[in-house]
Design a protein around this nucleic acid. Structure first.
Lengths: 340, 340
DNA sequence: GTGAAAGCGCTAACAA
DNA sequence: TTGTTAGCGCTTTCAC
């Protein structure tokens, strides 16, 4: 029976509900003797507070702030769209979600943005692995704000949770796919990244190299090109790679800018046998998967990530445990046949 | 502001909260003139009932029944474990979930089980595409029980939702993977199924044939073998296939019994270049993916499915809308690198 | 330190 | 038909 109420506990402990509430929420000091009795009663009755009732009574709203990179990165835009899409469902749960923008490539600016955040119960931030950012996150936590990192983590900071995928595993996945799709074909494989200074890009790149080197040694890896997640630059890079390496058999785009790559590839009617793997599902990458320009897409579900960040933040505010499996963000592999 | 309460609406419409509640929940007849005024007030105030408060007041518990196949099917066992794993979280939400077993291959028995179900607010059933079952589901719905089908659907019945994957898409995914992993290798591809009378198996098989035939015509498809989802039978079938077809290059297991296939494959130290694709993530299939016995696993997340079924059933009971994207069950592709 | 009591927003008797 | 009112289980003043 989850039927025990706070009144039952109070009665059994011989105190008032207010006292039980005090021990439950560490609200004020309670005489040790009473503390013991209340705790004993809670255990005896297997009491679990009803969080619906608690939230109703508390009547407080949750204020969350999402800190996202500015710019036209399609994936980030998608994240934001997901936030917007959920505001009404959220209103029903009394949560208000604001969005703030900052430059991803500028750690100092991100840190300053975080420093300036006030009046929120929780913050979800697309972070950066940089000492200033780590310090800013720690500051936020020290000020009593719950913080989760989103998509890109800042290791070593005192935030409680990372909502995102294991990027080196994602890179390894890309490599296995590349290796298996190529079979025993020989040739060169190119890698385009946004910037290896971005931890997620570096990790994917690392995972990719690791598996390709160990398992598919017959493939020759070209030096990685950093194109700042820019579509035009990625397009240009693709054209150059195709021209310079007639024996190019594979291409892996670690970061954004996939639109550009798709455009460049479509200009080459021949070379349809190139194995091309990129990240994230967008309108462009869906279409490219369907028409065969892309061989596979590795993705993380932005909708899931946003909902997960919300749930984790709410759980932290309520001091509730998480359902771990539900909050795990998976590394999705999409072919043209299993698109959502 | 989601701040408007039922009292605000009542005041603005010049009626009592009870009347507002009546129009909100279609509880009793309300004079048309009042109905109009209440509806106008609701719109004007953009009022949305607070479902936390509603549930607290209603104080009712949700009683759900899960109807699962009996037997040792590893996937189904996993589903059940997930149900058990969530009972405590569920208790917090006042939901009680019971589990009933029935024979999957016996439509009549399943129908009888459904006919006998009483006293539940919702039922989640691993169904069967059969007229008797359809009729039984319709009966359940007619008696006012909310019904969702789980994993395996019964098309045409009056239940409101199917929690599961698109199985022909899953079959197509398997075929694309098979075709791409084989590249330009030639040879035979074998398919093992539980029973093509099971709709999900038939659909996967169909999707697989379709894509393999259209896109990878150089592969020769062997006639499908039906092995009743039995591990020993699947093992034996695998041994026979390997012996009879030295030029076997691919194997796709549509249904259960993957353990047996893995065992049989491990007996053959040579033939490591066989591309083997199976369904569902289990301890055995994980291990086989890691050691290379399996090339890829196509899966649906049982935890997600159980949570989704619960959420959908609860939403139906509360007449609440769903978050469609959250309830979509995806066709997961697992390689050894992106295992959870 | 502790307890009584007034809500939080909604539902459901029960009266009228 | 409609309105009044007592809860649902918990939080939070405000006295004691």
């Amino acid at each position: 029976m989850g039927k025990a109420t706070i009144e039952d506990v109070a009665a059994r402990a011989g105190v008032s509900v207010a006292t039980v509430d005090r021990v439950l929420n560490a609200r004020a000091t309670v005489r040790p003797s009473n503390l013991k009795r209340v705790e004993a009663a809670i255990r005896a009755l297997n009491y679990h507070p009803d969080r619906l009732a608690a939230r109703l009574a508390r009547g407080r709203e949750y204020r969350f702030c999402f800190v996202l990179p500015e710019g036209d990165n399609v994936f980030m835009t998608g994240l934001e769209r997901e936030i917007a899409a959920h505001t009404q469902h959220l209103a029903a749960d009394r949560v208000i979600a604001d969005v703030t923008h900052t430059d991803v490539f500028d750690a100092a600016q991100l840190a300053r943005t975080l420093d300036g955040i006030e009046g929120y119960d929780g913050v979800a931030v697309v972070a950066l692995d940089h000492p200033r950012v780590r310090e800013a996150v720690n500051g936020l936590v020290a000020r009593g704000t719950h913080v989760v990192t989103l998509v890109s983590d800042v290791p070593g900071a005192s935030h409680s949770h990372f909502v995102g995928i294991d990027n080196s595993a994602a890179g390894r996945t890309a490599a296995t796919l590349m290796g298996r799709f190529l079979g025993n074909r020989k040739g060169k494989v190119a890698v385009i990244a946004g910037a290896l200074a971005l931890r997620d890009h570096a990790e994917r790149h690392f995972g990719f190299l690791q598996v390709l080197g160990q398992e598919h040694g017959h493939l020759q890896l070209l030096p990685v090109r950093e194109e700042r997640d820019s579509s035009p630059r990625a397009a240009q890079a693709t054209r150059e790679l195709l021209k310079q390496h007639p024996d190019l058999v594979g291409l892996y785009n670690v970061g954004a800018g996939t639109d550009g790559i798709i455009t460049a590839l479509r200009e080459q009617k021949h070379r349809r046998d190139l194995v091309v793997i990129a990240h994230e599902l967008t309108e462009a990458s869906r279409a490219a998967l369907i028409d065969g320009t892309l061989s596979a897409v590795i993705a993380q579900d932005p909708g899931h990530e946003i909902r997960s960040a919300m749930r984790v933040l709410m759980a932290r505010c309520d001091r509730q445990p998480l359902i771990a499996a539900q909050e795990r963000i998976s590394i999705d592999i999409f072919l043209r046949d299993n698109l959502p």
